[in-house]
């Protein structure tokens, strides 16, 4: 079983549309698991007319104060690095859930053993099965700050069922945090999607710092190639200097049109230049991942 992680820059580069297109194309012949790790705002399913259902809840550690044991000494308040605990004089310890980082300091410093480990839901794992293409979505509770934890748990869940599939595709959100690191760590190949704008280039460079430090094999896709005034030349030079193989998807109106109508461009406009580039990329990936013609 092979694993590909598709990562990229901020909203709009087309990374998810590309990841879903790749998944759909591979699913014609192979059993594929597509994993949506954009836990703040997962949208792979919008391009698949899918309605994934919750199969598991994700928890984070939260302290529980045992009021009968608590002597209101305030040590926990002192050692909470994010001020999630407040001592209400002569009354109780107030816990502010939204600030809690789940570090566990409070539990350790309480001299009375009055803080126990409790948990709170921070997100969910959802699933949908569509013939050869199965979808797992990691979703964080709205406003939840521990998004890396939601991603990591989703990845751990997926690792357990991975052997049932020929190919696992992670749709990884932009950034360079813990969750993204965990996804890249497992991947046999990292596919980076970028666009020829300065911000896209800025994000690409940051992503490659991480990829290089992890020594991961990768290929890059320059989406919206040919954008007037775009920095594709600089990007290509950067990729060449870093010995990264890259592909191009030309900028055309069809990708946006397909996205708006909730479809992938390979289905909606299969003869468009962008769709044909994606198919070519998939053929290439097939070769790289499965060494077949």
């Amino acid at each position: 079983m092979k694993i590909v992680a598709v990562g990229g820059g901020k909203g709009g580069t087309g990374k998810t549309a590309i990841a879903v297109s790749i998944a759909k194309m591979f699913a014609i012949k192979r059993k594929i698991l597509l994993v949506d790790l954009d836990v703040d705002n997962p949208c792979t399913y919008t391009l698949l007319s899918s309605k994934p259902e919750i199969i598991k809840e994700i928890y984070a550690f939260k302290p529980k104060i045992l009021e009968d044991k608590c002597k209101l000494c305030g040590k926990c308040v002192e050692y909470c690095p994010v001020h999630a605990l407040v001592l209400i004089p002569s009354k109780k310890i107030l816990f502010i859930k939204t600030l809690c980082e789940s570090c566990g300091n409070c539990m350790i410093v309480c001299p009375e053993g009055a803080i126990k480990e409790d948990k709170a839901v921070i997100g969910w794992i959802k699933e949908d099965k569509m013939d050869n293409l199965h979808l797992i979505v990691g979703e964080a509770k709205p406003g939840e700050r521990k998004t890396d934890e939601v991603m990591t748990e989703t990845i751990e869940y997926v690792e357990k069922i991975a052997e049932n599939y020929e190919l696992l595709i992670f749709d990884v959100p932009p950034g360079t945090g813990r969750g993204i690191y965990d996804a890249f760590k497992l991947a046999d190949l990292v596919v980076t999607v970028t666009e020829p704008t300065m911000l896209g280039f800025h994000d690409l460079k940051k992503l490659y710092s991480l990829i290089r430090s992890m020594n991961k094999k990768s290929i890059a896709i320059i989406n919206k190639y040919g954008l007037k005034g775009g920095v594709q030349d600089e990007q290509e030079e950067f990729l060449r200097n870093n010995r990264v193989q890259y592909e191009k998807i030309p900028y055309d109106e069809y990708m946006v049109k397909a996205y708006v109508s909730g479809e992938t461009v390979v289905e909606a406009y299969p003869d468009s230049p962008s769709a044909r580039s994606i198919k070519k990329i998939v053929k290439n990936l097939e070769k790289i991942m499965f060494r077949s013609a």
């Binding site: 690095p81 570090c103 566990g104 300091n105 350790i108 813990r178 690191y181």
Partner: peptide, 13 residues
């Protein structure tokens, strides 16, 4: 250091 948040839980134990 990519992941250390500096909360110091380790220092406490």
């Amino acid at each position: 250091y990519n992941f250390c948040e500096g909360f110091g839980t380790c220092a406490l134990v």
